[in-house]
Design a protein around this nucleic acid. Structure first.
Length: 917
RNA sequence: GCGGCAUUGGCGGAAUUGGUAGACGCGCUAGACUUAGGAUCUAGUUCUUCCAGAGUGAAGGUUCGAGUCCUUUAUGCCGCACCA
């Protein structure tokens, strides 16, 4: 009987569904284990073979854990709010919900074909009101909370109000509006005028992680800085805990480093500088407190609130011109153009240590969002200050012995201090400490830790997102009552912004709450993805995001698999969101994802044909890749992308190519052997004529015709082959090109495995067969536990080869269990053919009996001074001493030693014997 | 500039704790069966001057022993970046 994968896969997929085999209960005596994939955004293009890579890995792990007796939660859902559906809606008028639902249906269909063990009963969609009710609920909670810096955790804002009522006499004198304004400075979700990344083409603001090099990550449109009234989440309050929490979770070093970089902790000091002729000083942040004696000027960010205080009348015009220029520069211009610019304010500050007067400048190399937006400039020891000083001819005072500052600054934090009063003679490290002590004691400043991490801007001027549960009264925001959640997304007459420039929700009829206008912005993409893993635990619960008992059972995601592209977005936001809910007592773990694995990207492997464009070219002749460097064709061919689906092992399917597009209908070829269609008298193309295509590794994209659809692979080879092959491609974490050239090998193995089940017998296995089996058990168990899935496939192949035509039930049953996580359909059928009426996925993972792996004897290579001279066969069980004695009495050894006593004899049991003479 | 990761045959990649480098697959070569092969099976396939030696980007070091550990360096990929 042939291996009919289509029949087998269909049969078991419907059987699993019929039995509800993957339904997971929240009540079980079994130990819980939670395996999660990063849920996808359902794009219109459907899944390509890159998407399932991580899903296959997590599926293998889930199935393995289940076979090991765990109650495994393995859900799937859809991150279904987002820009593409909305852009499509603006272009075509199709409601984003319609597009999204259609795409989701397609995704589900594609995913089901691959045979994942998802509990589809737990599916969530972020655009579903029953889901976003809890996104809104969490936002509401953040609005009603503040971060207590003493306790280092979020608390209800009512506690802060109570505290003020008791201790702050001014609180009661404030008007309602003033009180609300003051509270806004403390709320975790707060409204403020902030400098935001505004993207005119997208018509919305973007968070920092949604902008890269001055362009929007989605679409690549220019982004400019603008001050707008926006909702933000006080993520920065959690910076310290987000950093510290990394030490307690099992993520890769590179990902942790990416997050550490993004959080950007830096230890330094805040110092106050008096302004000449003014009473109130201004504050700067520095990590180089040791260099105060070298400060020769000060610089403020253009947006700094200090600017208006220090500009003198005679410099006003100049400064305003400069500020105006800065305002109109886009982020991209600012990054690409690094020429020194700046303007003098007319004011002077007083150096608190030297008492000298130093000029105050404004320059956009100082960022308003970091530290205090003001710096003390030490040109001798900071390259940016140095460039500025050179440009404006400001003095440069070297502070470190031997530092040459004639050409460039000396930025290294090492050396002996000089020109620095009481710091002279100290090492930089000690000087920093001493200066910190000095400024603390004298009250000039204080030790301070700064973070690069900013608050997350949370408003989007878009339609297709979660509405804010916020309404406005007297211009102040108030939250919608909890009982009125979810606040459902209204229908609009137009998905574009209103004519007067308000967000699309301005087009909704009656968008009010108890007569008050509701917020017109919607939440960003990361809102819905920040707590979805909690919702999977208890997705039908209407009373809570997740029931406390249910949460106490599952606790947290034990294994999370997804791409690195979420390192500074989703993976920061959901950690923040989780910590907040933890602080407020709704969940029991403060980190959401215990172990995280990043799967690599699958790149496309494009194929090319080479059109002849040399002399006498008809534009219709294509040269085989192996010939393009021949003198007659060199530099006379033009590579053209060809659909990879009509190329196999780099050999072009000639007929398919001619049918592919009208322009190739009459294509002629120079084949690999140099012959042409003219040399060939037959109609069509004989089999021995091969046209070889060139190839390149590129991003998988429609325009390069290198997109491979998993459905096609499933159709041609089956889901089990797809699953095995994706794992076989290489280590999970590594990026690798999709290359179908090797898929036959994997498919051949499954066929061979299949043929082992022709006549299953009850015969007792031999020791050799058991040895092969237990070797396999050991290997596969180790591989899965260490996420080394790629190395299991060779182990299966070797075992199948060693077992040959063995069709003994005792062996085949165990083999099926081992294979079940990787290739569940064929394993299920094999299990069935061994006479079982249960499901293989409910079997018990076999244990390795090491006694089968012990060899009776083993050949030890005997080395002299590291060179192998001969081998000696000894019992495997021999002790170190016995081996040594046996070798010393061996004739060959005696001959080799020739009466010399060895300096050293090294015996590693089971390995090598080494003499040093 | 700072930080992280990688580099092994013609190709993808094995080598799990420092212990016989190149597993397994692709490709290639030869043979078998076949009207035929883009099917199947068998054997071979790191390199060289094939006796034997060399060999894991390069150069050193530690060790009886290094792809694996240390130092320096080259190349490639990724993250952050006028962050004071």
């Amino acid at each position: 009987m042939d291996y009919n994968f289509q029949e087998i896969e269909q049969k078991w997929q419907s059987e699993w569904e019929r039995q509800g085999a993957y339904h997971v209960s929240n009540k079980s005596d079994k130990k819980p284990f939670y395996v999660l994939d990063m849920f996808p955004y359902p794009s219109g293009a459907g899944l390509h073979v890159g998407h399932p890579l991580g899903y296959i890995a997590s599926d293998i792990y889930s199935r393995y854990k289940r076979l090991c007796g765990f109650n495994v939660l393995h859900p799937m859902g859809f991150d279904s709010y987002g820009l593409p559906a909305e852009q499509y809606a603006i272009q075509t008028g199709t409601h984003p919900e319609e597009t999204t639902m259609k795409n989701i249906a397609r995704y589900v269909e594609q995913l089901k074909k691959i045979g994942f063990c998802y509990d589809w009963d737990r599916e969530v969609k972020t655009c579903d009101p029953s889901f976003y009710k809890w996104t809104q609920w969490a936002f509401r909670l953040m609005f009603n909370s503040y971060y207590d810096t003493t306790l280092q955790k979020a608390r209800p804002i009512s506690e802060l109000i109570q505290q003020w009522e008791e201790t702050d006499p001014t609180w009661k004198t404030l008007s309602e509006k003033e009180q609300q304004e003051r509270l806004m400075n403390y709320r975790i979700a707060y409204l403020s005028d902030t400098k935001v990344n505004w993207c005119p083409q997208l018509g919305t603001v973007l968070a920092n992680d949604e902008v890269s090099e001055g362009l929007s990550v989605r679409g690549g449109f220019p982004v400019e800085q603008r001050v707008m009234r926006q909702w933000s989440l006080r993520v920065s309050a959690y910076a310290g805990r987000l950093l510290e929490g990394l030490d307690r979770i099992d993520w890769t070093d590179s990902l942790k480093d990416t997050q550490r970089n993004w959080i950007g902790r830096s230890e330094g000091a805040e110092m106050q500088f008096q302004i000449k002729g003014q009473d109130t000083p201004f504050t700067i942040f520095t990590t180089r407190a040791d260099t105060v004696f070298g400060v020769t000027f000060m610089v403020l960010a253009p947006e700094s609130e200090y600017v208006s205080r220090v500009v003198t009348d005679d410099h006003k015009e100049e400064v305003e011109a400069y500020l105006d220029r800065c305002k109109h520069r886009t982020e991209r211009e600012r990054i690409s153009d690094r020429r020194v610019t700046g303007v003098f304010t007319g004011s002077y500050a007083i150096n608190p240590l030297t008492n000298s007067e130093i000029p105050i400048y404004i320059s956009d190399y100082v960022l308003s969002g970091y530290g205090t937006g003001a710096i003390m400039a030490v040109p001798a020891h900071d390259s940016r200050d140095y460039a500025f000083a050179k440009h404006f001819n400001l003095p440069i005072i070297p502070l470190i012995e031997g530092a040459d500052v004639s050409e460039s600054s000396f930025d290294a934090k090492e050396g002996i201090m000089m020109n620095s009063g009481f710091l002279n003679g100290l090492e930089v490290k000690d000087a920093i400490a001493k200066m910190k002590e000095y400024i603390t004691n004298t009250g000039i400043g204080r030790v301070k830790v700064n973070y690069r991490l900013r608050d997350a801007i949370f408003s989007r001027q878009r339609y297709w997102g979660e509405p804010f549960p916020i309404y406005y009264k007297d211009g102040m925001p108030y939250v919608v009552d909890e009982k009125d959640l979810p606040l459902t997304l209204p229908e609009v007459s137009d998905f574009k912004p209103t004519e007067d420039g308000r967000p699309p929700l301005g087009n909704a009829k009656d968008w009010t709450y108890n007569g008050y206008p509701l917020e017109l912005c919607t939440m960003p993409g990361f809102a819905g993805s920040s707590a979805y893993y909690l919702r999977y635990m208890d997705n039908h619960n209407e009373k809570a995001l997740v029931d406390k008992e249910v949460n106490a059972y599952w606790r947290q995601v034990n294994l999370y698999i997804g791409g690195t592209e979420h390192a500074t977005g989703h993976l920061i936001y959901s950690r923040f969101w989780n910590k907040f809910l933890y602080d407020m007592g709704y969940i029991c773990e403060d980190e959401p994802f215990q172990k995280l694995i990043n799967q690599g990207m699958i790149q496309g492997r494009s194929n090319f044909v080479y059109r002849y464009i040399g002399e006498g070219a008809t534009g219709n002749l294509y040269i085989s890749y192996n010939l393009i460097n021949n003198p007659e064709y060199k530099d006379k061919v033009q590579p053209i992308h060809v659909n990879v689906n009509i190329v196999k092992n780099d050999i072009l399917d000639i007929q398919a190519f001619r049918n592919w597009m009208p322009e190739y209908k009459n294509a002629e070829f120079v084949y690999a052997d140099g012959t042409t269609d003219q040399d060939n008298p037959y109609l069509g193309t004989p089999a021995e004529k091969q046209y070889i295509c060139g190839w390149a590794i590129e991003k998988m994209s429609k325009s390069m015709f290198n997109v491979v659809n998993p459905d096609d692979v499933v159709e041609q080879f089956g889901a089990d082959t797809l699953r095995l092959y994706e794992m076989f491609l290489g280590p999970l974490e590594m990026s690798k090109p999709w290359d179908t050239n090797g898929i036959d090998g994997v498919h051949r193995f499954l066929r061979k495995y299949w043929n082992m089940h022709e006549n299953v017998t009850d015969e007792v296995p031999t020791r050799e067969e058991l040895k092969s089996l237990h070797k396999l058990i050991k290997k596969v168990t180790w591989d899965i536990e260490n996420f080394s899935f790629n190395t299991s496939i060779p182990a299966f192949m070797i075992a199948a080869n060693e077992l040959g035509k063995c069709s003994k039930k005792a062996i085949l049953e165990q083999f099926a269990i081992l294979l079940a996580p990787y290739a569940p359909h064929i394993a299920e059928e094999a299990w069935h053919r061994c006479g079982n009426n249960t499901l293989v996925i409910d079997a018990t993972w076999p244990e390795c009996d090491e006694s089968y792996l012990v060899e009776d004897s083993v050949k030890y290579p005997v080395q002299f001074n590291g060179k192998v001279k001969f081998t000696i066969e000894l019992p495997k069980t021999a002790s170190k001493e016995e081996i040594e004695a046996a070798v010393m009495n061996d004739d060959q050894t005696k001959k080799q030693l020739n009466g010399v006593t060895p300096k050293k004899v090294i015996v590693v049991p089971g390995r090598i014997i080494n003499f040093v003479v």
